[in-house]
Structure formats: C-alpha cells, structure tokens
C-alpha cells in the first residue's frame, strides 16, 4: 500500500493541476492557489533537507580528528552558520553583516568562478574544434563569426561580421532552437503524462 500511495497522490494532484487549467471557476482557482502554496512550502523544506545533508556530511568529516581535508569541512560549516546567524538574527537590509558578506565574498567569488570557465572553454575549443568535415566547418564558422561579431575588432575588420553574427543568431540559430524547443515540449508533455498515469515511477527510487 505504501508503495502505491505515492502513485495515487501523484495521479490526484497531477490530474487536478491539469483539469484546473480548463476550469476557470473561482473554487478551482482558489484551490489551485492553495496547492501552489503547499508545493512551495514542501519544496522549500525539501531544499532544507539538501542543506541538512551537506551539514551532516561535513560535520562527520570535521568531527574526525585525523580526517583528510578536515579543515575544508570546518570552513564550509563556518560559512553556513555565519550566514544563517547573521541573516536570521541580525537583519538582511543595508549595512548588515549578511549583505556585506554577500557583496564582498559571495557575489565576487561566484562571478570569478563563472569567469574561470572562459579559460576552460577556450582550452576545450582549442582541442576540440577541428574542421574535419562540412558539419564541423559550419560549427566552427558560426562560433568564429559570433565571437568576432560581439567584439569591436569584428566591426573594425568589416561591418559585415557583426551583421552576420546577428543574422546567424536571429535566423538559423533561432530556428534550430525553436525546433529543439518543440521537441522538448513534446517530450515534457509525454513524460508528464507517464508520471501522472504512474507508468514513469523512477522518482520513487528503488526497482
């Protein structure tokens, strides 16, 4: 029974969410809003489960005196608790420690992490981009035109480069993306139906 119960619950909630779209009645709309609130609450608490698991993992490592890289787990735990304590008990507005940490530690480090990817992308492109056949020439050519078209040197070489880059992005690239989006939409609808009907049940885990 406990194995089947989640499938029934999934069917009931899935069918309701699907049906309410076609029934614009005040009762259905109110119920819809309530279900959305419920899901947001469950979802928020589920996210906290993830944070709790991370804390548990690093607490286990930090509590072992001879564990390798123990100091890094202590740093993670310190970061988590300093943000929670400052954010929940000392405010989050202007001139607070919470915002100061966000502005001077978290935001610059996140931007740096993403910028670090430019080096790896460049290195991967150098190793991976080889004009072996017509298809890879299209790939390489499009990438070069778009990259040159987005910097001043492209316009300095010839104004056709930024124009071509814009055309590539707005016409063939956008159209191919549209084809992919249509495929994704069809796949999502089919998978959602399978989930609601209990055919797809991998989210329950186990065999």
């Amino acid at each position: 029974m406990l194995r089947k119960l989640p499938l029934y619950i999934c069917f009931v909630f899935g069918t309701f969410m699907l049906a309410q779209f076609f029934i614009p009645h005040p009762v259905s709309t109110a119920l819809y809003k309530m279900v959305l609130d419920w899901v947001q609450i469950i979802y928020a608490l589920s996210l906290l489960v993830g944070a709790a698991m991370l804390i548990k993992h690093h607490t286990l490592i930090a509590s072992k005196p001879v564990a390798k890289d123990r100091q890094y787990s202590l740093i993670v735990l310190f970061g988590i608790f300093i943000m929670i304590i400052t954010g929940l008990f000392f405010g989050r507005g202007n001139k607070t420690v919470f915002l100061w940490i966000f502005n001077n530690i978290q935001a610059p480090m996140q931007a740096t992490m993403f910028s670090l990817l430019s080096f790896f992308v460049a290195s991967a492109a150098y190793r991976g981009f080889r004009a072996r056949n017509a298809q890879s020439v299209f790939l390489l050519g499009a990438a070069i035109i778009v990259m040159l078209g987005k910097v001043p040197i492209g316009d300095m070489i010839t104004p056709y480069i930024p124009q071509s880059a814009d055309w590539l992005l707005n016409v063939p690239s956008m159209a191919a993306r549209r084809g992919i989006y249509i495929g994704i939409a069809l796949g999502t609808i089919a998978t959602s139906l399978r989930v609601i009907l209990g055919i797809e049940r991998t989210y329950l885990g186990g065999k």
């Binding site: 406990l2 119960l5 989640p6 499938l7 619950i9 999934c10 069917f11 009931v12 909630f13 899935g14 069918t15 309701f16 969410m17 699907l18 779209f21 076609f22 279900v35 959305l36 419920w38 899901v39 469950i42 979802y43 608490l45 589920s46 549209r178 989006y181 249509i182 994704i184 939409a185 069809l186 999502t188 609808i189 998978t191 959602s192 139906l193 989930v195 609601i196 989210y203 329950l204 885990g205």
Partner: peptide, 30 residues
C-alpha cells in the same frame, strides 16, 4: 519511505502544471 509522499505531491503538481504550460508557452507559441 514516508518521504515519498511529499515528493509525489511535488512531482504530481509539477507534471500536471507542465502539460498546459508547455503546450501553451512552448509548443503552440513556437
């Protein structure tokens, strides 16, 4: 195993909401 119950609500609501949303915003619009 009891944690599957709230999980099934999230999955059910997500799947039910995705069908009209994708139909309207992705499929028909594209």
């Amino acid at each position: 195993q009891f944690s599957r119950i709230p999980l099934s609500i999230i999955i059910g609501v997500g799947a039910g909401a995705a069908i009209p949303a994708y139909m309207q915003a992705q499929l028909l619009a594209q």
